[in-house]
């Protein structure tokens, strides 16, 4: 009984961590599907979102919800500007240029954050910090539960947006066939910048949800590497796949941390990734129809 409860707790904690990976992976996938660029700065954008929320809530004394919302909006606007000013220019350049550019941007963001907020870990009070919920004898930290619930809500919102609204469907359309989208009068460039905004906003949500669990610091963006594994496991290009990939990585990591000797936890995400690439290289949810040329 004890063991079962323990296991369940590990799974919930893992799922919570996995949701964070999943959210960052979602950002990778959204941008990749639209522009065929891989944004390696995605984790660092999450870090910026976390620091922004810290400034607004801990420094300026804003209410948690107001501060969080504002941080998300500002980060999203930053994402839009990033595409409109910088990344739009490398469309059509070799993939390598994009990789270098986004990796470089990641360095700049980390340095900028270090100058602005310092290199120490910071945190701020959230309504979920150090509280627990009791679910039928299972004691869970509210911080972890809030991550899972927040992710589920965010996914619901995004799903509705992409399938029901005019702009959301246009985003899908522009991702599937850019030329045809132009012919329909869809302002494809702005739509792509909006997708960057959404990805950055989602990253900010991840940073804010993560803040009660782990402190915010300049190097938290390296979570992006695990999120990248999550995106590949999900079949780079599938939105549900990226979230499920994230949750898989998170849970495996937690279980490895508990049951395996120290040190294994850190490498498990890559082990899962390698296993996936060997067994099912197209990922869990590869799209059935290829892009027509």
């Amino acid at each position: 009984m004890e063991d079962a409860a323990r296991l369940l707790q590990l799974v919930v904690n893992g799922a919570a961590a996995g949701c964070i990976y999943g959210l960052i992976a979602l950002g990778f996938v959204l941008i990749y599907k639209a522009t065929e660029m891989v944004n390696f700065a995605q984790g660092d954008i999450m870090m910026l979102g976390g620091f922004l929320a810290f400034s607004l809530i801990a420094h300026w004394g804003l209410n948690y919800w107001v501060g969080a919302l504002l941080a998300i909006v500002i980060t999203a606007a930053f994402g839009y500007a990033l595409d409109a000013v910088v990344l739009r220019r490398v469309i059509g350049q070799p993939q390598f240029a994009v990789v270098m550019l986004t990796l470089g941007l990641g360095f700049i963001f980390r340095a900028g954050a270090g100058i602005t907020w310092g290199y120490d870990s910071v945190g701020f009070a959230t309504p979920f910090t150090n509280k627990t919920v009791n679910l039928g004898g299972l004691v869970l930290g509210q911080d972890n539960v809030s991550i899972i619930v927040g992710t589920v809500i965010l996914c619901g919102v995004l799903f509705t947006f992409f399938s029901k609204t005019r702009v959301g469907v246009a985003m899908q359309a522009a991702s599937q066939n850019q030329l045809a989208a132009y012919y329909m009068g869809i302002p494809v460039r702005n739509i792509f910048s909006l997708i960057w905004a959404i990805s950055a906003g989602v990253a900010a949500v991840a940073g804010i949800l993560l803040s009660p669990v782990s402190m915010i610091d300049v190097n938290m963006g390296f979570l992006g590497i695990k999120a990248f594994a999550a995106a590949v496991i999900g079949g780079f290009g599938s939105i549900p796949g990226s979230l499920i990939g994230g949750v898989i990585v998170g849970i495996v990591e937690q279980l490895a941390g508990y049951y395996l000797p120290a040190g294994f936890q850190e490498v498990t995400s890559n082990v899962v990734l390698l296993a996936m690439l060997i067994l099912r290289p197209q990922g869990l949810f590869a799209e059935r129809m290829g892009k027509r040329v």
């Binding site: 469907v169 246009a170 899908q172 359309a173 599937q176 066939n177 989208a181 799209e287």
Partner: peptide, 17 residues
């Protein structure tokens, strides 16, 4: 040049974007 993953109706509605 269709939008292959959208439904026929969604494709048509994109024409009226």
């Amino acid at each position: 040049e269709t939008f292959p993953f959208l439904t026929v109706k969604e494709n048509l509605m994109m024409g009226a974007y």
